[in-house]
Design a binder for these strands. Structure first.
Length: 267
DNA sequence: CAATGATCCTGTCCGC
DNA sequence: TGCGGACAGGATCATT
């Protein structure tokens, strides 16, 4: 499930792979995957990618003449570079063709992923309310204080809320809370300032380490070259039986999602 | 307004 | 062997 580190990995792969070639075609192979804003600047193609950006879990590719692609992989979306057709043709939802025949396949088993073509001026209309970028220098415990204000939800659920902080998903929140020694069931109303600071530090650490490892592949995630990431080898609680201290990991449901935590290490 | 639940969708896994 | 059901979960929408 692509979260911030996986999206960042894909973005870097795209930049490296596209390497200055203009986008000359975008094909939709599944109804609803590609969405066109009515006010696109014409002509759309061919267009160089002028900027490669990420906001939370969204990839934003700025195109010449003021258009942009807003891409969300959701759960099973993959962007894979290929020079030949074949591979897993069953789940190809869209094709991005660059000159020189380089193709990026948008493969998405569960079809929740989207590619939105829009004028840059209207990008915000396609993004939900997103909190701060956790890897920005300005991200601090004060951001969490602000995001948690007036809430009583369990810290696990609150950190999954993209309007509080952008880019975290189920796997990394479990890992962050383990490292911070905080139970996922703790109400955000009960967190001390020092706990908020711990959470912030561990968010930074975990995301930075995961990006360095090219993301986590627990099921579908792949890099642009179809290779897995490596951070799954460093998970401490997610889908684990025992924590690094040897204690039994507990699995509970919170807001419909599995939380993995160590009842001994996390209070 | 906060919080929860259903929804979208398909592949995988488990029990019978 | 196959079938039904639970599960995976990011984001949105509807409901409490």
């Amino acid at each position: 499930m692509p979260e911030l580190p996986e999206v960042e990995t894909v973005l870097r792969g795209l930049k490296r792979t596209i390497n200055g070639q203009p986008l000359c075609q975008l094909d939709s192979l599944y109804n609803g995957t590609v969405i066109y804003d009515p006010e696109i600047v014409q002509p759309l193609f061919p267009a160089h990618v002028t900027e490669f950006c990420r906001r939370g879990k969204y990839i934003i590719l700025h195109l010449e003449r003021g258009n942009a692609l807003v891409i969300h992989l959701r759960m099973t979306g993959k962007l894979i570079y290929t020079e030949n057709e074949n591979e897993d043709a069953k789940h190809i939802r869209a094709l991005l063709t660059f000159t020189g025949c380089a193709r990026i396949i948008f493969n998405d088993i569960r079809t929740f992923g989207k590619i939105i073509v829009t004028p840059e001026s209207r990008i915000d209309a396609y993004l939900p309310e997103l909190g701060p970028e956790p890897l920005d220098r300005s991200f601090s415990y004060k951001c969490l204080q602000k995001g948690f204000a007036g809430k009583k939800a369990p810290v696990k659920n609150a950190l999954l809320d993209q309007s509080v902080v952008a880019g975290l998903g189920n796997i990394y929140v479990c890992e962050i809370l383990y490292r911070a020694g905080i139970s996922p069931e703790t109400s955000v109303a009960d967190l001390s300032v020092s706990q908020l600071k711990d959470i912030v530090n561990h968010i930074r650490q975990v995301l930075t380490e995961a990006i360095a490892m090219n993301g986590t592949s627990v099921s579908d995630f792949r890099q642009i070259d179809d290779k897995t990431g490596q951070f799954q080898n460093f998970l401490q609680v997610y889908q684990k039986e025992k924590c690094p201290q040897g204690h039994e990991i507990k699995r509970i449901k919170q807001a419909g999602r599995s939380s993995f935590y160590c009842p001994v290490c996390q209070k």
